[in-house]
Structures are given as C-alpha cells and as structure tokens.
C-alpha cells in the first residue's frame, strides 16, 4: 500500500513537471510578441525593447521557464502583460469561485444520480427503470450551457425566483450567494447527474448479479435491502472513480457555465485572457487547471485502492 502510494506520488510529480514544460513550451512558441500586444502597433522599437526587458522576455527560454515555475512554487504567478497587475490574487479569488461552482454542481449530480441510478438498477425490468435510463440517455446529450440558457429563461426571467447571473461572495450576503449558485449548479449538475446515473445503474446491476446478493435474497431480503446491506460498498468502487473523473469534466464545464451566468471564476479569467491575448494569465490558469486535474486523478487512485481491498495487494 505504502509502496503503491509512493509510486503514484512520484508519477504525479513527474506528470506535473512534464505538464508544466508542455504548457510553457506551447505558450512560448506563440507567433507574435507579448510586448507588441501590450503596447499596440504604434510602439517604438526602443519602447518595445524596454518592455520586453521588463517582462523578462529577452532572457533564454530555460531561464524564463525556471523563473516561472519557481514563482509558481512560491505562490508568485507573475504580472499580467496587459494590465501589469499581479496575477496571483485574482487567480486565487477566482479559483475559489470556480470551486464553489464545481462543488455545488457535483452535489447536484450525486443527489440526482445515486437515487436515480439505484432505482433504475433495482427496477431495470420495469417501466420506471426504463424511463430513468431513457431520461439519463437524453440528459447526457444536452450541452451544459443549453441547460443553463433554458434554466435562466424559466426560473430567472419568466418566474423571477432566482437571479439570472452575477456573483455574490458568501461573506457579503450568504442568502444571495446561495440563490445565485442554484442555477449554475443545476446546469452543471443536471448533465453530469445524467452521466453519473448510468454509471451508478451499471455498477448496481453488476453487484445485484453477485452470489452474495443472491444468498441474501434467498434468506428473504428484498433486492433493495440486500443491496443496502451488502452491495453498496462494492458498487461504490467504480462510482467513486467515475466521480473523480467527473470533477475534471465539471471543472471544464464551469468554464462555459461561468460565461452563461457572468460569474467571475477561473473560466471567465481564462477566456478574457485569451480574448486580450494576456498570455501569462492564460499560461497560469491552464497550469492551475491541469494541476487540479492531475491532483484529482491522484486522489481518485488513492481512494480507489482504499475502497477496493483486492487492489491493495496488487503491485
């Protein structure tokens, strides 16, 4: 177990190192000069040279990479080429906003998927099971932003129950914060819930076919009670793994949903930076997102090993 954990940790660190080289290298091959972008087309050559020097763009690539990665490790994300402001504070703020969104979306997805998936599996021979499966199949096909647009139209514009967009931090007004979180969380969570429902159904169906469930049923337990007592932990193993991977999907889905609901999260920061060609911001945000994905994958692996005793022995 300890060996496995150490091995996974080393792989995580190596992946992070390679990913950082990829992100940096990719942004460095960019055609065009960040100094030119910052100053506009009318900048004099002297001014351009001075700005390039200020940004540190006249140094060798290796030095720039080490400087960037060293900064990241100490929490210094550098200064925006366009506004000149420090990137760190706004990145941290917006990361928090996106995490709220992803967390709430995940909660919605789980609250939908676990009961719906279990029900669809237990009643897979009945109409109710088939209806849930059909609905989840439909849900998988709907883009999150479309769900968002429809939800805004119905619940914000027509019924006026919740705000149609914007963001209130929880410390400023908790009630307004929660109200504002409902629609974005639903648009993220409904679609992911549909995907997750199918995995939960599949996992529970597999468990229902196991011998120990048959024994429990033979002892007189209903399928539901047998499942509750013996099957859920086993069904949880694949579901937790998928849940972890879905965090990644939610994180990226949040980029789009933030656009629909005008939420100042990491996605908006990234898209605005792409629009302004603020490349250091793009580089930092992409790296933070990739770091999150790799960390989540690592944690899923660890959790998977903890939940599944059979895997603890495997080298």
């Amino acid at each position: 177990m300890l060996f496995q954990l150490t091995r996974r940790l080393l792989i995580l660190l190596a992946s992070l190192a390679v990913a950082s080289v990829l992100v940096f290298g990719f942004m460095a091959v960019l055609p065009g000069d960040p100094a030119q972008v910052a100053l506009g087309v009318n900048a004099t050559p002297e001014l351009l040279a001075r700005t390039r020097h200020e940004f540190g763009l006249d140094r060798p690539l290796v030095v720039r990479y080490l400087d960037w990665i060293g900064g990241l490790l100490t929490g210094d994300f550098g200064r925006s080429y366009v506004t000149g402001e420090r990137i760190g504070p706004s990145l941290v703020d917006r990361y928090g906003v996106t995490l709220w969104l992803v967390g709430a979306g995940m909660l919605v997805a789980v609250l939908i998927a676990v009961p719906a998936g279990v029900l669809a599996a237990v009643r897979h021979r009945r109409i109710s099971g088939a209806v849930i499966s059909g609905l989840s199949q439909l849900g998988v096909a709907v883009p999150g932003f479309l769900a968002g647009i429809v939800l805004v139209q119905v619940f914000a514009v027509s019924l006026g129950l919740v705000p149609s967009g914007g963001w209130t931090p929880p410390v400023v007004d908790p009630v307004e914060f929660l109200l504002g979180l409902i629609l974005p969380a639903l648009s993220l969570g409904l679609v992911q819930g549909a995907v997750l429902t199918r995995y939960v159904r599949s996992a529970v169906l597999d468990v229902l076919r196991e011998d120990y469930i048959r024994t429990a049923r033979a002892k007189g337990l209903t399928p539901f009670r047998a499942l509750l007592r013996h099957g859920l932990r086993n069904a949880a193993v694949p579901v937790v793994t998928v849940l972890g991977l879905q965090l990644t999907t939610l994180l990226v889905g949040a980029v789009v949903v933030e656009r629909v609901f005008v939420i100042p999260g990491l996605g908006s920061l990234l898209l605005d930076a792409v629009g302004n060609r603020d490349l250091l911001v793009v580089q930092d945000v992409v790296m933070v997102l990739v770091l999150t994905v790799l960390l989540v994958n690592f944690l899923v692996d660890v959790l998977y090993a903890v939940l599944n005793p059979r895997l603890r022995q495997v080298g």
Partner: peptide, 9 residues
C-alpha cells in the same frame, strides 16, 4: 498526461 488536458482546455 494528455488526459490532464481536457478537450475544451
């Protein structure tokens, strides 16, 4: 490693 870069990103 490529999986760490989702399609949209």
């Amino acid at each position: 490693l490529v999986l760490a870069f989702p399609a949209l990103l």
